[in-house]
Design a protein around this nucleic acid. Structure first.
Lengths: 379, 379
DNA sequence: ACTAAGGCTGAATCACAAG
DNA sequence: ACTTGTGATTCAGCCTTAG
């Protein structure tokens, strides 16, 4: 595990292969300074678990009078909302610079801080794609009986800009992982506990807020591709790095505390990546090569003059040389013509139009599939 | 159903029974103007379902090209985040004035607006008690396959001030309603559909975002008492009013659109309140009359000189005439002595100390219960 | 060996009244 | 506004110890 400082990183900026300095490394130092030492547009996805600014009062006792081990670390202390907002804007601004135009960012938080994070993200022109609720199977109860059990945390998933439409979302992989129905915005996972929880020699937890690997697994599987660069500016004990390595993604972690760096480093060293073949996820039609209707004419799947009809044979149109259809003297693409005859705004011509070939009356989408299979075999 | 304007309301301000003008009424008009016509500190709980500031570019179509009946009403359009923030601050400020010091507010929203609402609530010194996730059993799918199914909405529950500790939370009623475990921050309900959904003569839904009554039922049951005043500044078709009336709470609705007022008015007229007896909810021990330990001595349940022991008989103490305990020459109350022998900060002496009576070795809390039952029988 | 019982703990903005 | 005393309050999961 390579551990570098922001200063070293800046010196290496002129080197030919500067990425070798920081890829799959932990950068020790302040988050903003470290981010400023990274090249612009170099990161595909950011996962950030910033301080929550809990603002806890006195001690909290359980009904048996034992004390709750609160998250009272110095890094979670902010004097005012304004101080927290300034901190948040600073690191988000630095993150925005290193993020690729089609990159996305995840931020996790609780009601103490997530509203402020969300507002600042929107103000900075990030475009929220979803808010995801992590429902905990085993949250800490409310001991005083004065509120509802705080049983969830919230993640915001956002693209860098409103018009960034090419971000990665492995829709079909998510659907596959969710028993063939769309993955929802509420996810259920237990909190990090048991063997996964890193503990020191004294048996105490190394980090007060270690996240479960299952959570990061779904995050990275849904929104990154193998070989992508995943940045975590609040690396902690390195859950993001561990899961990224296992899933064949590159990671960059930024962390100030040496204890956390030591734990993360040892942890990630022990991770073995999944075999490449198993990293391939289900892909939908969107990832398939686009096929122009005209290509089917060029290759003989469809002949000029063929008559296309809808499944119930209510309408018919004739194929022209340029791939347009002729219907009662009007010409248009397969999609526009389908829409026109049905008097709709739009229509998927591939599934609407059918053709009578030797094998029967079939949608032209079947011919497209045959064409693609032949393409794949040739490659 | 009484329907009044903000102007009428202002004129009635000097009348002896001004509340008769607005209680269980719909105020027609702008939300801020109407709120300013209401007396300060007059509302126990606010439920607000403000415009969501949905940023829908163009129309949204399903895969079969039918149109999604999107929420594109003019009242849901805000040009910029700043305009939405100004609007939000204005109505929250007006709400704050009419809210009682120990009142609470609920605001529901989606990721389009809830982060801004949460930030402004915090900036205005409201104190967030919980964020509640409404998980929809039947959300609208994501038709484009570019995001996770947006399957939840978020509610923020907040008190007026950080130090307002006397807000209503019917902890035991919620626990009872949740199979005897604490109610969590994630609630599951179907969206409002079927017979509950108000539709016009044309079969179209009257309001685009009608909330399910089950959601309001839990909101009001958890955080209000019978007879409380519940204000909804964006009344719409009056779900808040309908549930409030059914549960024996008073309501005040504010609404601009006459169509919604008509629908809400007819709807609420048809509601029959639950019988008073059924409105009583489970209460915790806090609501029981306080019993001094000395009273048990006065009435003979405990005798001076009786020996009290903890459940495992590790410690023992002797009862003194004034209700204090003697343990190795030291004297203290049942609670302080229990804490002292266990070397804890605090202890509930009623459940810690046991006594051997004819019926067995029982906690003195049992004797307190017997005493209370006799008190109740006498009353 | 295995089962049962009990202990421990987790991002928590966690009481209320009387004096 | 402050201190002091009473006494109300926990779920799921893992781990250790007892049987």
């Amino acid at each position: 595990m390579r551990i570098v400082s922001a200063a070293e990183l800046r010196r290496s900026k002129s080197s030919a292969d500067q990425s070798a300095t920081w890829l799959n490394s932990i950068i020790k130092g302040d988050c903003v300074a470290a981010l400023e030492a990274l090249p612009a547009n170099s990161v595909d996805t950011v996962f950030a678990d910033p301080p929550y600014n809990l603002q806890l009062g006195g001690d909290l006792s359980r009904p048996d009078q034992s004390k709750v081990d609160a998250c009272d670390d110095h890094w979670d202390q902010f004097d005012t909302f304004k101080a927290y907002d300034d901190f948040t804007r600073a690191w988000l601004l630095a993150v925005r610079r290193v993020l690729k135009p089609n990159g996305t960012i995840w931020v996790i938080g609780s009601y103490h801080n997530i509203f402020r994070v969300g507002t600042i993200l929107q103000d900075m022109q990030f475009w929220i794609l979803n808010d995801i609720v992590w429902r905990k199977t085993n949250p800490m109860p409310n001991f005083r009986g004065r509120r509802f059990t705080n049983a969830h945390e919230t993640m915001i998933w956002a693209s860098r800009d409103q018009d960034a439409k090419q971000y990665t979302f492995n829709y079909d992989a998510m659907k596959m992982a969710n028993d063939d129905v769309q993955m929802r915005s509420d996810w259920v996972f237990p909190i990090c506990n048991g063997g996964e929880r890193l503990r020191g020699a004294d048996g105490k937890k190394v980090h007060p807020t270690q996240k479960p690997e299952a959570l990061l697994h779904r995050v990275l599987l849904s929104s990154t591709q193998p070989g992508d660069v995943v940045l975590d500016p609040f690396f902690g004990t390195g859950t993001t790095g561990a899961v990224a390595k296992r899933l064949g993604r590159h990671f960059v972690g930024i962390e100030r505390e040496q204890d956390y760096i030591d734990a993360a480093s040892a942890r990630i060293e022990g991770i073995r990546p999944e075999p490449i073949a198993q990293l391939v996820v289900t892909e939908g039609k969107k990832a398939l090569p686009r096929v122009a209707f005209g290509a089917l004419i060029e290759t003989g799947y469809i002949a000029v003059g063929d008559v296309l009809q809808d499944s119930k044979k209510r309408w018919q149109a004739t194929v022209r040389l340029d791939g347009s259809l002729d219907c009662n003297g009007e010409t248009a693409s397969i999609h526009r013509m389908g829409a026109k005859v049905q008097e709709l705004d739009a229509c998927n011509g591939w599934t609407f139009w059918h053709v009578d070939k030797g094998d029967g009356f079939l949608p032209i989408d079947d011919l497209r599939r045959q064409y693609r299979e032949k393409l794949g075999a040739a490659a």
